[in-house]
Amino acid sequence: MPKYILKRCIIAVFTLLVLITIIFFLVRLLPGDPFNDPKVTDEVRARLEAYYGMDKPLIQQYFAYLGNLLKGDFGVSLIYTGRSVNSTIAQTFPYSADLGLRALGLALVVGLILGTLAAQKAGRVIDYVCVLVAIIGVSMPDFIIGALLKLIFAIKLRVLPAGLWNGFSYTILPVVALSFYTLALITRLMRSSMLEVIHQDYILTAKAKGLSNFQVIWRHQIRNSILPIVTVMGPLVAAVLTGTFVIESMYAIPGMGKFYVESVHDLDYTMVLGMTAFYGIFLVSANLVVDILYGIVDPRIKLAESKQKADDGEEG
C-alpha cells in the first residue's frame, strides 16, 4: 500500500505539471490582451509587457515560470498591480475553504440520511418527499436558490444577514444554498445505489443471521452503496473548496471564486495559472484519496487488484 501511494504521488506531480503546461500555453491563445485599455497608449502597453517579462519568447517565459513555481512563487498578478498570487490565495482561500467544508459536511450528512431513508422506505410517502426535494435541488442552480434564500430570509423576514462573513449566523444562508445541489445529488445517488444493494443476497443473509435492522444498514448497506458517492465527492470537494463564484459574490464573501472566474475574463495570465495550479493540486489529491478510499470501502476492489497481480505474477 505505501508503495502504491508513493507511486501515485509521483504520478500526481507529473499530472500537475502537464496541466500547468497546457494551461500556460492555452491562456495565451485566448483573444485579447491583458493590458489593452481604451486609454492606454501603445508605448505604455509595450512598457507593461516588458515589465512583466512578456516580451521574451514564450518558451523562456514558461521555464521562468516553472522555476518560480518550484520555489513556491506563483508570480505577480497582471491586473492587481503589485499583488502576488500567493498572497491573494493566502488571503482568500480560508474563506472559500470554510464555506466549502461546511456546505459539503451539511450535504454529506443530510444527503446520506435522506438517501438511506428513501431507499429503506421505497415506495412510501417519505421516499417521494425525499426524491422531490432532491429533484428540486438539482433542477435549480445555485444562483436561483441563493437569491431565493436571501430574498426570503434576509430581506423579507430579516432573520438572517444578507451577506458578509462575520459570525455563525452569516454562514447559514450561503452554506445551505451551496449545499443544495450536492445534497440532492447525494440523496439520489445514495437512494439509487442502496436500492440495488438492498436486493442483494448477502443482505438477506445478514437479516437471516439475525442482525438488527440498524446493523444491517450500517455495516452492510451503507458501505456497499457509498461507492458512487465517493466517486462523485472527489472532484466535488476540490471544486467547492476552491471557491464558488456565484454564492461568494451573492453573499459578499471574500473568497477565491471571484479570482478564478474574473482572471480569465481579464486575461490575468499569472492569476489564471495560479488559481488553476492551486485547484489542480486539490483535484489530484482528492482523486488520490478517492482511489485509496475505494480500496477501504469495498474490499472487493482491493481483492481484485491483488488477485490481478497474482494472476499477472503467475503468467509472468
Binding site: I11, F14, T15, V18, L19, I22, I23, L26, V27, L29, L30, P31, P235, Y260, V261, V264, H265, V272, T276, Y279, G280, L283, V284, N287, D291, A304, E305, Q308
Partner: peptide, 27 residues
C-alpha cells in the same frame, strides 16, 4: 482493464478536469 490503462485514462481525466471550462469554451 485496470492497471496502466486505468492509470493513464484517469490522469488524462485529471488534467482535462483541471482546465477551466471558460477557457475551453472561449477557445
Amino acid at each position: 482493464f485496470g492497471g496502466r490503462a486505468d492509470m493513464i485514462i484517469m490522469r488524462i481525466i485529471d488534467v482535462l478536469y483541471g482546465i477551466p471550462m471558460i477557457i475551453l469554451a472561449i477557445l
